[in-house]
Amino acid sequence: MSDTPKIRVRGLCKAFGAKKVLDGVDLDVAPRTSMVVIGGSGTGKSVLIKCILGLLEPDAGSIEIDGADVLRMDREAATELRSHAGMLFQNGALFDSLPVWENVAFGLLAQARRKHTRITRAEARARADAVLGQVGLAPSVGDLWPSELSGGMQKRVGLARAIAHQPDMLFFDEPTTGLDPIMGAVIDGLIVDCVKRLGSTAVAITHDMASAQRIGDRAAMLHHGRIVWEGRAAELLESGNEVVDQFTHGRREGPIQMELRR
């Protein structure tokens, strides 16, 4: 069964009104590897991972996790399968009504509630402190509120929240956007460490080429609603594909034309 991809997407389509965002996306992600999806703003990268996570319902296509099509199974089974996923959102998406430690422990407490097991708040706090330590934050940070954190700290807390329940799939939505280059490299390093430690399969979307090469084992380019190139992340800068070359080198001239208005 080692040939079965952890995530297999086939013919995925999603439109918003008349605008086709995904138009037949095919993508395989092998177990315990990291796939980076690159592409211009508004090309549907976030829509792709939201469809995989069940946050958006695709119009057509299939999404298989461990060989099972999540779009054709009942809601309970799909929820169970997706409960093994963690997500780091672009802006952190921390719950601002909860202190940091409760944000980090949220998935643990939800998991315990779903499985009818008991975890005390003291135990959850201890687990949250341990996970905060894994992303380089002191236990005292757990008492702060999300609004008291810098952008970099919010990303770290978001990462801690995503990995706290030890998921076997991790999704990262532009993890370094809005961070300075050094903090971006730190977050990328933490992501790589977490993915390796957990033995997870990761999908990240980014427009940051340095970040893409640090995080990804493989990379794919999304353009006009389809995957137009896929290869090793290390080859991103010399892919030989003119669309990828224009994007990765930031050239104004090439097959990608900026859409001023549609």
Binding site: K50, A85, F89, N91, A93, L94, F106, G107, R114
Partner: peptide, 20 residues
């Protein structure tokens, strides 16, 4: 206002990804 802010800052999506 509270739920609207949670929606536009992805906090509601985050709940779904945390089995809630």
């Amino acid at each position: 206002a509270e739920l609207g802010t949670m929606r536009v800052t992805d906090q509601i999506d985050a709940l779904s990804t945390l089995q809630t």
